[in-house]
Amino acid sequence: MLFGKRAQRDAFERQAERVFPSVFGTALRLTRSREEAEDLAQEAMVRAYEAFDRFDGTNFKAWMLRIVTNLYINKYRQRQRGPQMGSLEEDNILEPMAEAAELPDRQVFDEMVGAEVEEALGKLPEDFRVAVLLSDVEGLAYQEIAEITDVPIGTVRSRIARGRALLRKFLLDYALMEGYVKPGNQE
């Protein structure tokens, strides 16, 4: 029995160590605070460790991201500042379709550095941010994101499209500010 537990811990640690950067990165991008991200990531790992015998063995990374996202939603979200999801999507204020003229120059995305992208990501409304993060940063499929966030797959598709459109706007603002593109020369 003791050997079984030792082996179980080893198995958990092997998988957890591989996905921990993703878990921590997601926690950091959700909370936007390193201290809170450490608490969130560690609590998620502890919960996962305690529930490891209930893991179905299919996709450990998705399982971990589900834990960290749900934990954030249930525990940390109330304390967070900044934009919240709701009005943008429900009132249809945000237009997901970018006009061709608004499309950024190809060079823009190559010139962007991590800090600028992270800051733009941080400005996204929360539900858009979660969807874009899980899709584009963590590489999860729509179905997995739908299960993690507990919304229909159509809502995931919509949030990703709208989140990306808004992120593109923020990135373009940066590009204009930093001189990567000039006004009127964004195509």
Binding site: A41, R106, F109, M112, V132, R164, L167
Partner: peptide, 18 residues
């Protein structure tokens, strides 16, 4: 390109937390 840009974000340093 935007998707690839997000995919290239560097990993966050988290050895201490691990």
């Amino acid at each position: 390109r935007q998707k690839e840009l997000l995919g290239r974000l560097p990993e966050v340093e988290c050895a201490d937390s691990w």
